[in-house]
């Protein structure tokens, strides 16, 4: 069951990511990105991180991508033109580079899976433990300072946005 979920939504995520690159219209690309994010949320959930999954859907697919789609709609961006060949450097260095990074990351993950918190899918799904309490405990004890600093940072960003939006202030 878990394996079936992983295969279906893993493939969906990869297909969405490829579609994101190959689509010409920005709105189709944005929608593919939403598909990727939703599939990732399902994968998180199948790993037992249900809060992370919900946060992924609410924050990324529900808020940030809505703004993306909104901007694309407002600008009425047309299809991107593809009569240029693209740079040769990208083809020569980029594809092997991306492959090398992929191989390196796979190697590191497989080699160090014990240290990185490796877990079997099966165990996580059956244990109906709420990890919400665990996350909030971590956030408000050992990660309290970074958490508060981040909230101040976000506040500064909001104030900056308000100042930029209203010049007469």
């Amino acid at each position: 069951m878990q394996l079936a979920l992983f295969i279906i939504f893993g493939l969906l995520a990869v297909a969405g990511a490829l579609n994101l690159l190959f689509q010409r219209h920005p709105i189709n690309s944005a929608l593919s990105l939403i598909v990727v994010m939703m599939s990732l949320a399902v994968l998180y959930w199948s790993l037992g991180a249900e809060f992370l999954a919900a946060a992924q859907v609410i924050v990324y697919s529900g808020a940030i991508m809505v703004l993306f789609v909104f901007v694309i709609m407002l600008l009425n961006a047309g299809e991107e033109e593809r009569n240029t060949k693209g740079s040769k450097v990208a083809y020569i260095a980029g594809i092997p580079g991306a492959a090398a990074v992929f191989c390196l990351l796979t190697f590191v993950f497989l080699k160090e899976k014990q240290q990185l918190g490796y877990a079997m899918l099966q165990e996580m799904m059956t244990g109906a433990v709420s990890n919400l309490t665990a996350i909030s405990h971590q956030l408000f004890t050992s990660l309290l300072l970074p958490f508060e600093v981040t909230s101040v940072l976000i506040l500064v960003a909001i104030l900056g946005a308000v100042v930029l939006a209203r010049k007469e202030l």
Partner: peptide
């Protein structure tokens, strides 16, 4: 009975926006 049922409802509602946004566009 999901232990984050309320969040799931909020999440699905926020996805529902796309229906309206895309229909207009």
């Amino acid at each position: 009975d999901i232990n984050i049922g309320l969040l799931v409802i909020l999440g699905i509602t926020s996805i529902g926006i796309y229906g309206i946004a895309l229909s207009g566009w």
